[in-house]
Design a protein around this nucleic acid. Sequence first.
DNA 1: AGCTGTCGTTGCTCTGGCGCAATGATCGTA
DNA 2: TACGATCATTGCGCCAGAGCAACGACAGCT
Lengths: 219, 219
Amino acid sequence: MDLLKGIDRVHHPEILDSGIRTSIKAKKILFHEGDIAQRCYLVIKGSLKLTKLNEQGREIIIRYIGPTELTAEVAVLKEKKYPATAEALKKTDVISWDKQTMLQLMRKYPDIAINMLDIVFKRIDDVQFRYLELSTEPVEQRIARTLMRLMRQYGKKTEEGVCIDIPLSRQNIADYCSTSHYTASRILSLWGKRSLIISRREQVTITKPHKIRMIADEE
Amino acid sequence: MDLLKGIDRVHHPEILDSGIRTSIKAKKILFHEGDIAQRCYLVIKGSLKLTKLNEQGREIIIRYIGPTELTAEVAVLKEKKYPATAEALKKTDVISWDKQTMLQLMRKYPDIAINMLDIVFKRIDDVQFRYLELSTEPVEQRIARTLMRLMRQYGKKTEEGVCIDIPLSRQNIADYCSTSHYTASRILSLWGKRSLIISRREQVTITKPHKIRMIADEE
DNA sequence: AGCTGTCGTTGCTCTGGCGCAATGATCGTA
DNA sequence: TACGATCATTGCGCCAGAGCAACGACAGCT
């Protein structure tokens, strides 16, 4: 639990209970880009997709958010807008806090504030790195890196390989690494033929992680 | 002064004096990407260029940092690395604080912590927006937006127009909006012929800001 | 003044990847 | 089980922009 790192387990219930537990149905929107940020959210179960739209209505995926991850931290400050839209991929449980409650918590447990800073810095690092990637790496490499990222976040071992356990269309992959669904499809189907992955409708299983990693050229 | 917003002027000297004032010569490096972050910096006079390198050694510019702006906030947390390299464009004066001092300050003046959060959230917003831009807008538009940004940050009124008052080569512009210096040169020289700008060696003056703004297509 | 090195410009070529169109595969629903 | 809707695949043409090469302009140094 990123937010509670370093805090004695005894206090966890108090902290979590001070928020409101809600459940969002699959494909429902939790908050919209541009709305005034009222609450920040911790995902307990399920998954969110965080996206932004440009003026022409093209969607890009900022990231996926799974259990134990926090989002909309910006809600702790006043008069801020949500910088992106969050949509539930499946039935998703979250705990949310409004500004006052979260600030009180941070005052009582300063580690929460530190952890939040830590989360936020990691976020910056992440976007900046992906920005660098987008500037300088070709699509194939970006897709490979995206699969590696998703594998680490959502990978489930199966007898076929590591399955990325969220609904993941070619369009989603394209939106996540800024390409077209045509290109995403072409590359995935190529990798499928080479047996690096098994690709089904809205689902990818990685059978040769090391090979994908080589294409990603990490480090 | 972003960092001191909302804090009584009486306390400013104490806060600023608790840091160390240093001067960096033009073209000298203040900190390197990847080094352990020891201090965070407030620019008083002059300017910094913040860059990242990819594996192949290609440079991208994250942003320029001018007076009253803060950088390397990440240094308040332990064991963090500088996420980018900062180089002085000209002789630049900064005030810097180490982790302990800054944390003490934040404890004594909680507004500093709030302001820092605010700065950091603005940073995320910024990168995410530029990421969206890079994904979806053509080069010409990105260059126009970059010029608008630099104009707001470094614009000086002259009789010719608004001059961007930092050394700014075509290569710099290219690194800032992820294109090649060839393309940057072609576009700037086109705009020069249309008298939207006056472009000299390492210097750009915008004579028709509204036209550039139209190309940037802001809002 | 002349030399050297950096920066800027521009014609040319080449290609990564976009987007259309057509088709096939699979899902949910009645 | 049949049908519409969404998702995936692939051949094809096209073009924005990268990169090379060659040259010009200007700055700083001796």
